[in-house]
Design a binder for these strands. Structure first.
Lengths: 336, 336
DNA sequence: CTGAAAGCGCTTACAG
DNA sequence: CTGAAAGCGCTTACAG
């Protein structure tokens, strides 16, 4: 069964290619009955070629999404939202992992360009930000999601890192904690600086002196956080609570605490950032700052689509986080 | 900066379009020096249009991947492997969520067809299997990954459900457990039947009588497993160990056990299936059967690529699972 | 409302 | 080794 083309349909409907093309695009320039007949035939018979269409329309109804690693649950959540929003509007999405390798990111972006995607979304990439110049020069609409580079001229969707972290640290301080640690991300992300900023503001507001020894660096993954918590626990006066850069770090910290025989939250309160799906099922369930991942993906897509259709669109949308209090935090005096 | 075409390069190199086209494809039919010059110009200047090329070559160097839900960590792991393998071979991947909705799955498959993908991979979809006839009729190469439908005529990559589950249940039985529960998946997946099969074979081999009351159904997610574990715990003689359909179910069971004040593994041993990234960090770390997700994705891609190039390829690849023993299981007599 | 014709940007026999 | 020409399958002025 050969792939049918517009021409075949034209033949069996005994009209011209032009008419078929119009009917398939629901053009008003075509007789109702003729149009319906053609559409019915097309439905049964086959489909048009997007390639041929794109060649003349110069649109592909396609967007490219570059992520550092689709296996990261935060990224996967965002991509889910992007795909949903794109599909709703009739767009298909190309997905490419950069693995945070600049060379690979360049490669995939070029392949996106060659495929003439109508727009590109870059997620959480430090690398990506370095290429903003290249990307903007390509003059393909671009939206950055949780961009990690301060100086961008691109449109972006960002979580309110500072505000969310402030809420997290305030929660801990109000519980009565005075020695509150922060396990950050050593990769020099802007988000790390912002989250630390919110943490510091909360401490200051609660009259807690900033202690540099309580601020250590993980890698955004469980392993790095385990080490980082180890450092914190070696302190003369170890923290009674730790705010972590993200849920994955909190997961590692929780694991490490358990390995050392500490109870969470009785011996150590822990707060994360992200609210991954699994976080509610941890033992204990994790107190964290929710990022609406799917929603952020949808937002980024809508922004991009507006860019593509040249509609006005806000340069940067900042999404608030939401503190979700669960069982990994409690007052320090419940200790022992 | 306008998008350059082959024609522009031809002009500045003062050769014909044909020559540029050949040089860009590294054809031996072109003078070395000329070729290099052209390639250099092209590198600086711009790129060819994949759409125009596809129109004549009838290939798009593109594959479509349909998943039920990219936010599922198992699926995300598989997609990561697919994307890696595809990128290596110069293919781009379209990603589409079906959300397990048949209508949406149809839609995305059609859009894949319209975009003339060279091949399609369908992951873990019960729905997908229903459309195998439609898909095969499209005569686009198709590979199913962990297909949930028994009667397919398509190529597929599957985990050895029966063998993995047998190993999991044997592990429990050898630890000394005699009352071993199974929390399955109520969605009627073939994988559920196979995993239960492995469980039953192990019991039989260890001389443990099969007790239907110990076999309950979850939904493959934490919530369903919580309920299911609740049922098991209401039994007169509740199980001392439970094998779960997947890690997400084990996560829910662990959460429910904790909520009821049971200690894992002392009061209840728990085994999962998948070995998600997070499973090693759970409290306690989860004993489970590892599915090499990324590897399976790569395998599916290689099979598909072979199909695309008409090379011979095995109809069905069965991947062995690996039992990973961690801290969520112990002998029953350690109880109390 | 409809059709003939040009053209989108490539690739590939065909003829040198 | 190179170029002119046809053609891939559509869309869209243009002319009825």
């Amino acid at each position: 069964m050969k792939r049918l083309s517009i021409k075949d349909i034209a033949k069996t409907a005994s009209v011209s290619n032009s008419t078929v093309s119009r009917a398939l695009r629901n053009s008003p320039l075509v007789n109702r009955e003729t149009g319906e007949l053609i559409r019915k035939l097309a439905e049964e018979a086959g489909y048009r070629s997007a390639a041929a269409r794109s060649l003349v329309t110069r649109r592909t109804d396609t967007i490219g999404v570059v992520v550092t690693n689709i296996s990261d649950p935060f990224v996967a959540g965002v991509v889910g939202g992007i795909e949903d929003a794109a599909e709703e509007r009739g767009y298909s999405v190309f997905l490419a992992n950069s693995n945070a390798e600049p060379a690979r990111e360049m490669r995939v972006v070029r392949s996106f360009e060659e495929r003439r995607v109508d727009g590109i979304i870059v997620t959480s990439s430090r690398v990506g930000a370095l290429h903003v110049p290249m990307l903007t020069q390509m003059e393909v609409p671009l939206v950055l999601l949780n961009n990690q580079h301060p100086s961008e001229a691109a449109h972006s969707v960002m979580i309110d890192n500072e505000g969310g972290s402030y809420a997290a640290a305030m929660h801990l301080a109000r519980l009565g904690h005075r020695r509150i640690g922060y396990i950050g991300d050593r990769n020099g992300h802007q988000s790390d600086a912002e989250r630390r900023g919110g943490y510091e503001r909360a401490l200051a507001e609660m009259g807690i002196a900033y202690d540099a020894a309580l601020v250590v660096k993980g890698d955004g993954k469980p392993e790095g956080a385990r080490e980082a918590l180890g450092q914190l626990l070696q302190l003369e006066a170890p923290p009674t609570a730790v705010f972590c850069y993200n849920d994955m770090s909190a997961l590692g910290a929780m694991h490490e605490a358990r390995a050392r025989g500490l109870l969470v939250p009785e011996d150590l309160s822990l707060v994360g950032f992200d609210d991954l799906y699994i976080s509610q099922y941890l033992n204990p369930p994790l107190t964290t700052v929710r990022q609406p991942m799917g929603e952020m993906g949808r937002l980024a897509t809508h922004t991009l689509l507006r860019l593509i259709t040249k509609e006005a669109s806000s340069q940067i949308v900042k999404v608030p986080g939401e503190l979700i209090v669960r069982a990994s935090t409690c007052p320090p005096w419940e200790k022992r």
